[in-house]
Amino acid sequence: MSDFIDATLAFPAVIFTFLLVVVIGYWIVVVTGLTHLDEDLAWLGLSGVPAGVTLSLLIALAWFFSLAGGTFVDSTPLRVGVLVLAVAASWFVTKLLVKPLRRLAPAASPSRHDFVGLPCVVRTGLAGNSFGQAEVTAADGSTAVVQVRTTGADVLKRGDKALIFDYDAGGEFYYVMPDERVS
């Protein structure tokens, strides 16, 4: 057991041993629900999977490769070579592993701003500057009934087609205007 600990604390594995401890700490925090990391690592060619998963794979593999390679060499220049090879090999293997994981990653959650620019149909008797609801069809084909308001003197009737042009986060409603593309 002491040989294993010595190997994990020897160069180059010691670099990734520290990072592996950080990764384990990160996953403890994620499992307890305190935080999560949703960024994407497209700049490394590792897109489509949350950064927490990708970085965990990258660091764990680099640690393993540097630990395994470091046990076979004794000189510092060769250990530097092991470090470079461990980083390159971990990136390559992580890239291979991320491809099938992309299918398991959840799609980006829709935002209320996704409706801006879409047409809608008024569903209440009237839609004006203080009240109204309209039905909008999202890009995925699902529909939603949303709160809408007009600006100025525009008043829309049930069945009128309108265009959503802005979202008011404070009031949680969309600004609409008559859709002049339809007669």
Rank of each mutant, 00 (worst) to 15 (best):
K95P: 08
G81R: 05
T124P: 01
A108T: 03
D154Y: 11
T94C: 02
L118R: 13
V146A: 07
G69E: 04
G152N: 01
A139T: 12
T143I: 07
V73S: 04
S75C: 08
A134D: 02
G132M: 00
V87G: 12
V84Y: 06
L78Q: 14
G128T: 01
R149L: 03
A138L: 07
F115R: 01
R123W: 10
V148F: 08
A138Q: 10
P106C: 06
S111Y: 04
L96M: 15
K161F: 13
L67H: 00
T76P: 09
G132K: 06
F131Q: 15
T94N: 01
A127R: 05
A68M: 12
T71R: 15
V87N: 07
W91I: 09
V80L: 12
D160E: 12
A127G: 00
A144G: 00
H113I: 00
R79P: 06
S111H: 03
V155G: 03
V73F: 11
R158N: 13
T124F: 02
D154W: 10
K99D: 11
V136W: 04
S142I: 03
S130I: 13
G141D: 03
V121H: 07
R102K: 09
H113P: 02
S111M: 06
V98Y: 00
V145D: 12
D160Y: 11
V155K: 10
S130D: 15
V145F: 05
G125Q: 15
T151N: 12
D114I: 06
A138I: 05
H113A: 11
G117C: 08
G141A: 08
L101H: 08
V98W: 02
G132I: 04
F131G: 11
L67F: 07
G69P: 07
V116L: 01
A138W: 07
P100N: 02
T150V: 06
V146M: 01
K99R: 14
D140K: 02
G141Q: 01
F72H: 13
G117T: 08
A134M: 03
F72I: 11
T143D: 06
L97Q: 01
V84T: 10
L83K: 00
F72M: 12
P106Q: 09
L97D: 07
K157L: 11
K95R: 15
A89K: 03
P119L: 05
K161Y: 13
L83I: 05
L118S: 11
K161I: 11
R158D: 14
T76H: 11
V146R: 09
V155W: 09
E135Q: 14
